[in-house]
Design a binder for these strands. Sequence first.
DNA 1: TCGAACTTTCAAAAATTATTGAAAGTTTAT
DNA 2: ATAAACTTTCAATAATTTTTGAAAGTTCGA
Lengths: 178, 178
Amino acid sequence: MKVRKLSYICIMEYQEAKEKFISTWGSLGTLWGINKAMAQIQALLFISTKPLSMEDIMEQLHISRGNTSMNLRQLMDWGIVTKELIPGERKEYFTTEKDVQELARIIAKERSRREIQPVVKVLKEVSSIRDDGTKKTQELIKQTKALYDLTETADAMLNKIVNQQQNWITKSLIKLIK
Amino acid sequence: MKVRKLSYICIMEYQEAKEKFISTWGSLGTLWGINKAMAQIQALLFISTKPLSMEDIMEQLHISRGNTSMNLRQLMDWGIVTKELIPGERKEYFTTEKDVQELARIIAKERSRREIQPVVKVLKEVSSIRDDGTKKTQELIKQTKALYDLTETADAMLNKIVNQQQNWITKSLIKLIK
DNA sequence: TCGAACTTTCAAAAATTATTGAAAGTTTAT
DNA sequence: ATAAACTTTCAATAATTTTTGAAAGTTCGA
């Protein structure tokens, strides 16, 4: 009886923590441009000990089949989630990249490609207009050029960071992943 | 006549470039969680050679008075835009931080405070639940702890970068700001 | 204290984005 | 070739976010 009670408490603790994590990660997703469902699916897979089917995901997150399908597809486009075929099973199962370092690398690369690069392109264009000598044109050129350089530098830095660390991130992960 | 035609062309070039910049910066805003109007107002001020009034902004961006007022207020909350009182004028005028380096510093600091810190808090909480020995609890703990460390590290890095560079960003700006 | 010149607020409307669910599509075993 | 077991698509709907505009609020000079 004591044990049963204890066990019950443990499950609650786990469930609560899990839900908190999924929902927080989900709302963070919204902030950096991926939708809630997508971020939650990733979160769910991230803490799951085994691959999950579409049914599993639908059920645990209470989202529709269509929504699950579309967001899984997007996660696969990002290269964050992969299909896992289980022999003898008709269903498809999904897993996410479990190594946060690799996850960060993928996300940084994708965001750079999808979001930063197009902006850099426009900044370069705008900062290259002909200087007609007016003050306002010169201001436009100067400021967009400054932003262009900043953005490029930030992007280069981001890539550098996520590619060749070995010190920053790895250090803290070594003790956890073992 | 020749001059007038030329001048006309210059204005078009400037206008087109300006609009392109404002609209691109506006849509980038959406991607990182600030709305279009807010980003566009900042963009407009950023390339303006003199402080602008609410009327100026409303007119140039074709947005309503209410919208302008609310978004200017938000930009001031972020510390990116400041009121400029012009002696003898009743109207309020606005300017934005013109140094991109300082701008980046402010934005990074605000984003860390508003978005990253709350997530770090939850990750810490979740990764501190009692380990009941089950595989799934251990996975939850391990993975959220890894994310916690990653997020904290990324945040620390962000702050480090925007505070004490002198090499990366500054280098490219020196030649521009002079 | 009044009123003109501004700014702010906020409920309603518009625009955008996410979600649903059922029909269409696909794959595989027999 | 068929049917069962799945997945994908997409038009309709729901939810959320942004924008408007007019009323309320503020400030200042006379």
